[in-house]
Design a binder for these strands. Structure first.
Length: 945
RNA sequence: GCGCAUGUGGCGUAAUUGGUAGCCGCGCUAGACUUAGGAUCUAGUGUUGAAAGACGUGGGGGUUCGAGUCCCUUCAUGCGCACCA
């Protein structure tokens, strides 16, 4: 007796692979490289569910395949182990995050190992490991010591900035200030001025240019989590982790100047083989819009002006008022005495609205008149200045020129407050809506009259430039990324404060390791938890020290904020290339060889977070000469989420009666209850199990059945404990085996589609693998009897069809269709009663990327010395599948009329000759003349008469 | 509102890119072997029809000898962004 015992087979080969380091990437190597990267997981406390490995299985198939065709494959894995959940858990339980994280990582590793991935674990990284975050801190210092030079369009060492300031002064930089923090009266300063500035003033000015900088800005503050969040970590006004409300707050915060890279991040997209949806999300997030800024002088105060931004300079003559954001710096000073009370009230209400309230009440129109007027720069007409919260302080200049005839929001504002609406395009109706279309001929517009929209834009911009009333400008929606977190469980920011001035920690003193503390919540005075550490002081060349022992003017207190979760994940793919290096984040040689990921697989939820930050850091590192390439990954695939199937039963409201799905009454109200999906077979609930599951609820309930069955509804939802629909891959591995799990996850549907998990369908895949086993092994005596004869024509045809198909599938990420092809092949072999050694061993090789364990075992049982994982991929030979001597349908005008037997190796002309010697065919033609004969691949498809 | 996807049997899906729609699997029906089977094997399974055939890829229109595939339009679903001037 020898049945397919997946448990022992899988354990055996997993141990073999680990022991012999079969999947270790070579370096150095003379082979061509291929880098298959997965998004590394955050090791959460609930472990993996069957949705997590989907992308890993796909990438593993590619990695194994690429090894077979001769590449030196880098296929690593690691853990994104800093993050909020472990810390929240620490706050609640006092359990140190290191402990929870360690435990979770062990569990993840166990679960991953069971699935039989070909990861090179010798290169594993953990972002919370100090040997790793030493280099995250090193990169931070690099970013801190760099600035984006607008002249060269790249990041440079901060020394080049200082050199320019020393020699040319502010005007040598060639740009506006990058943040609004330099006191305006300082600008522009000369090189002489600069040389006379005090150290602290110089530092404050330089801070405005650093790529990692400390600055005052509106940030997303989450009071519940006690920390600042980046824009992508906020969804609809709530924190992505935990769903707590988020407010806008002005704070002095560490940020990353990603805005400097807006244009390069946008333009770099076109060369990437990424999916359109991801590229579009990033484009959307970066949000480039071209237009111009315009200056409006203020009536009675000709020395003062308001700058507005518009993308429609052609509508300049349609301006009937200006609107400024409530937070706009001029809001107060523009208000006349008579309007003072009203405006102040309005501004206060607007400021105190949370982000959430502002977003939900988008339809509400509110605003108030400041009492002041601006002067139209061309017509010199007086234009009232209003305050309105539909104008955002963070975008453009925080002020707009309102053209209600051609902008819907301005239109609604104008209607609401009964302000004039001036159309400047011919045939514009302003009864119901603004005319936002960028087409038509200008009217009421002085020198623009008669031009079309695009001509008018050009003409308007020319006029604006010549008369110096504004300038062309490009605006981005992208905001600088908040980088500091008022949290414990993250990389310490390697900055200390000497006399209140931030100073970088010396490179040789890295890493600054997390201090031991026992309470992880903020201090009583609201300081981040790191402020609790007694020795959170730094001295150059000495490292951490306790100020009580070492009071020394050379040192200072360390920064108490830590880095956000995305810091460690923005560069981990480079660390894999040389994971053990203690001298550099990775050696030049390793970086030059591995370059970048050739394939990156992960969830699309990281489109505007991780994937944007990674591209940003990669570009900075490239600019500064530390990397050979500008993008982290050439090709990116987003696997679709596997949803859980939730089981829902119905309880009559107010009674303890459970009613079967279709036995429900229309006039009764029911409460829908989620029950454990494991209690359900098909859509029938096992009532006895249900009673055992939650005796308190279901033991004494009354049941209304249909056909003596309790039927539930099934719904696809995100897998979560809350809905009792989580399927654990361990359970699947125990029952069916890892190979079945791998094949089934691929078989479920296209990799990139979201799809619900349905455990029933797995039986088919499981049967298939049992069939494969029986094809090789005689189960009654355990022998393997394969014949050594020359394979026959039909078997070879099946095999080569399969070689072609599987190779094409893997190259094109069409994994689901491979499984069907394997099944067809096995059925054909059974039909042909084929037990040919050559054919079947090639089949094993083709199946091995998908189901590696069973293939290794059968390959071994066949007596092969070499392991299947290092065998060469079979080569497709078209001679085996060329069809010949076959009945082909002949269609006339699209209708099938007859079948003719002919040899496909014939030339088109010869086929035509055969056709015309066929009497039946001549009959059908019935004297009509043939217009055209349509051939596809030497096969007649249609005849047009 | 803007952008990006996706619509094919009872269900998950296939159709290598414009060439015989429905491969493979689940489910279902019948049968075989069984004391029994939630094991295994065989046959059937888009709709309609006794059959020949006809009709069929969300709806409508178009291009083509030929459309699931291309174009226009419309509806539905999912995702992303959203008072971005």
């Amino acid at each position: 007796m020898r049945n397919y015992d997946h448990n022992s087979i899988e354990r055996k080969w997993q141990e073999y692979w680990a022991k012999h380091q079969v999947f270790k990437a070579e370096f150095p190597s003379s082979k061509p490289k291929f880098y298959v990267l997965d998004m590394f997981p955050y090791p959460s406390g609930s472990g993996l569910h069957v949705g997590h490995p989907l992308g890993y299985i796909a990438s593993d198939i590619v990695a194994r395949y690429k090894r077979h065709i001769g590449y030196n494959v880098l296929h690593p894995m690691g853990y994104d182990s800093f993050g909020l959940p472990a810390e929240q858990y620490a706050i609640q339980t006092g359990q140190h995050p290191i402990k929870t994280t360690k435990k979770n990582i062990l569990r993840y590793r166990e679960q991953l190992d069971r699935i039989g991935f070909s990861f090179d674990w010798s290169r594993a990284v953990q972002t919370s490991d100090s040997s790793y975050y030493k280099w995250t801190q090193w990169i931070f210092l690099l970013l801190y010591n760099s600035w984006y030079n607008p002249r060269t369009q790249k990041a440079e060492n901060i020394e080049t900035l200082i050199y320019i300031l020393e020699n040319e002064g502010f005007n040598g930089i060639g740009c506006d200030i990058l943040t609004g923090d330099i006191e305006e009266e300082l600008l522009p300063f000369s090189s002489k001025d600069w040389q006379h500035f005090e150290y602290s003033k110089k530092q404050a000015i330089i801070m405005n240019f650093r790529i990692a900088y400390l600055g005052e800005a509106f940030v997303n503050w989450c009071p519940e989590l006690g920390t600042v969040l980046a824009n992508d970590e906020v969804k609809n006004g709530f924190s992505e982790r935990g769903g707590h409300p988020v407010e806008r707050k002005k704070m002095n915060q560490w940020s990353m100047r990603i805005t400097a890279y807006a244009n390069r991040l946008l333009e770099g997209l076109s060369d990437l083989g990424w999916r359109n949806s991801i590229k579009e999300s990033q484009k959307n997030w970066i949000g480039k819009s071209e237009g111009c800024s315009l200056y409006f002088k203020i009536k009675g105060q000709p020395e003062r002006q308001i700058e507005v931004f518009t993308t429609r300079p052609d509508t300049l003559f349609g301006v009937s008022f200006l609107t400024i954001a409530p937070e706009h710096e001029l809001a107060k000073s523009l208000t006349t005495n008579s309007r003072k009370q009203e405006v102040e009230e309005y501004v206060n209400i607007a400021k105190n609205r949370t982000e959430r309230e502002r977003m939900t009440n988008v339809a509400d129109i509110s605003g108030t008149f400041t009492g002041s007027y601006a002067i139209h720069p061309i017509t010199n007409k007086e234009i009232p200045i209003w305050v309105g919260d539909y104008v955002l302080v963070g975008y453009g200049t925080g002020a707009v020129m309102a053209v209600p005839a051609h902008d819907q929001r301005d239109y609604e504002f104008a209607k609401f407050f009964d302000l004039p609406i001036l159309p400047v395009l011919e045939n514009t109706s302003i009864d119901k809506n603004a005319n936002e279309a960028k087409e038509g001929i200008l009217c009421n517009s002085d020198f623009l009259d008669g031009l079309n929209v695009y001509q008018a834009m050009t003409a308007a911009i020319d006029y604006i430039k010549i008369n110096n009333i504004g300038k062309p400008k490009i605006n981005f929606k992208l905001r600088d990324a908040a980088f500091g977190r008022q949290r414990y469980w993250g990389e310490p920011i390697p900055i200390y404060y000497k006399n209140g001035i931030p100073e970088p920690v010396l490179e040789k003193d890295l890493p600054i390791t997390l201090p031991e503390i026992s309470i992880f919540s903020p201090t009583e005075s609201g300081e981040p938890p790191l402020a609790r550490a007694p020795n959170w002081y730094y001295m150059p060349n000495k490292g951490l020290c306790n100020p009580a022992d070492d009071i020394n003017l050379e040192g200072g207190m360390l920064e108490t904020s830590t880095m956000p979760g995305w810091a460690g994940s923005s560069w981990y793919f480079f660390r894999y290339m040389d994971a053990e290096n203690s001298k550099e984040f990775a050696s030049k040689d390793a970086l030059n060889y591995w370059q970048q990921a050739d394939l990156y697989i992960g969830g699309s939820e990281h489109a505007t977070g991780h994937l944007l930050y990674s591209r940003f850091w990669t570009k900075v590192l490239y600019d500064l000469g530390h990397l050979p390439c500008q993008e982290p990954a050439k090709n990116l695939i987003n696997q679709g989420m596997i949803q859980g199937l939730s089981a829902i039963i119905y309880r009559t409201e107010g009674e303890n009666t459970i009613v079967s799905k279709d036995a429900r009454d229309k006039n009764t109200n029911y409460t829908a209850l989620h029950i454990d999906i494991n209690l359900v077979q098909g859509n029938e609930v096992d009532i006895e199990q249900l009673k055992n599951w939650r005796p308190a609820d279901f033991e004494n309930a009354t049941y209304v059945l249909e056909n003596e069955k309790l039927i539930c509804s099934l719904e696809a939802e995100k897998m979560s404990k809350r809905w009792h629909n989580v399927v654990n891959p361990d359970d699947i591995c125990n029952t069916y085996g890892a190979d079945t799990l791998r094949l089934y996850e691929m078989f479920l549907g296209p990799l990139e589609e979201p799809k619900p998990w349905n455990t029933q369908g797995i039986e088919g895949v499981s049967r298939f693998l049992k069939k494969v086993w029986r094809l090789f092994v005689n189960e009654s005596d355990g022998t393997v009897n394969l014949e050594n004869l020359q394979p026959d024509q039909l078997a070879n045809k099946s095999l080569h069809k399969l070689i072609k198909k599987i190779t094409w599938d893997i190259e094109n990420f069409s994994f689901n269709t491979s499984v069907a092809a394997y099944m067809v092949f096995i059925n054909e072999m059974n039909e042909l009663k084929c037990r040919n050694k050559e054919i079947l061993s090639t089949f094993l090789l083709l199946l091995s990327p998908y189901a590696p364990h069973i293939c290794e075992e059968l390959w071994d049982l066949m007596g092969n010395q070499e392991r299947i994982s290092s065998a060469a991929w079979p080569i497709f030979d078209p001679k085996y599948i060329e069809e010949s001597d076959f009945n082909y349908p002949i269609s006339i005008n699209g209708k099938t009329k007859l079948q003719i037997r002919f040899d496909l190796s014939l030339k088109q002309q010869e086929i035509e000759e055969i056709l015309f010697s066929n009497k039946e065919f001549i009959n059908i033609l019935d004297g009509k003349t043939i217009k055209r004969v349509i051939f596809v691949k030497a096969k007649i498809i249609n005849i047009v008469v």
